[in-house]
Write a protein that binds this DNA or RNA. Structure first.
Lengths: 116, 116
DNA sequence: ATTGAATGATACGGGACCGAAACGACCATT
DNA sequence: AATGGTCGTTTCGGTCCCGTATCATTCAAT
């Protein structure tokens, strides 16, 4: 068994989530920022700039800038790797975990309300 | 009965769709643009700038600019309302319909591949 | 110690978006 | 015809993002 969605339901779901996100106070993340954030919170650590860039298939400055922005939002934090000081380890934060959790709940809620 | 998703599944779904969108050639839409496009294709016409602005709870320039961008991408088209020439009617395009259809299919596909 | 590779950050020019305000075209009422 | 309201667009100043190229730091191998 797997999650079954019809295309029109999928689109309606995306629309409803997008509408909800837009109307929240929080400045909305770009698609790339969202992908980075979710990767940090869903994929197993450690997460480095280079690793994230490879995972998303984007350049490193994209990751650096996204971490700047989301770091200012307190959604992620950066730490130098003490074993190899070239590396930066990206870590989760309490605020970030809460944000991701709320986001997941919002999607679930919109999915529940979908017409069949 | 309704669509049932667990939060972690919802997040994984969003991540996978975002990752797929980023790696497609197509320049990705902002959250607002996506909401506008989906509203045009899912909600019943006619669609006006003012109506879309009210639906999304954003200002009119946001709609105008999004229509500029997505019009250049051929995802939507604009037409003056001949009955009231102040209005602009936003219409679907073949390319836009195809884009939305593909997007829906992509979400469905990612949902199907979700671990339980 | 020196060299070369690897990592992440930064500089630069260009483009897109935002909110607020002003604008032109159009309609409806008088 | 004049007036006030409605609709969509444009302008303004500012911020953020992008891709490319370059930079400083650190590591590893000589």
């Amino acid at each position: 068994m797997s999650i079954t969605l019809r295309p029109v339901q999928a689109l309606r779901l995306w629309q409803n989530v997008a509408l909800a996100e837009i109307n929240d106070q929080r400045p909305d993340l770009t698609m790339r920022q969202a992908a980075i954030l979710l990767t940090i919170y869903l994929d197993p650590p450690p997460h480095t700039v280079r690793g994230l860039a490879a995972r998303l298939n984007v350049t490193k400055p994209v990751i650096t800038r996204a971490l700047d922005t989301m770091g200012a939002m307190k959604l992620v934090s950066r730490h130098r790797d003490q074993r190899d000081k070239r590396n930066v380890l990206v870590r989760r934060t309490v605020e970030g975990a809460l944000f991701v959790e709320r986001f997941g709940d919002a999607i679930v809620e919109k999915a529940r309300g979908l017409p069949l």
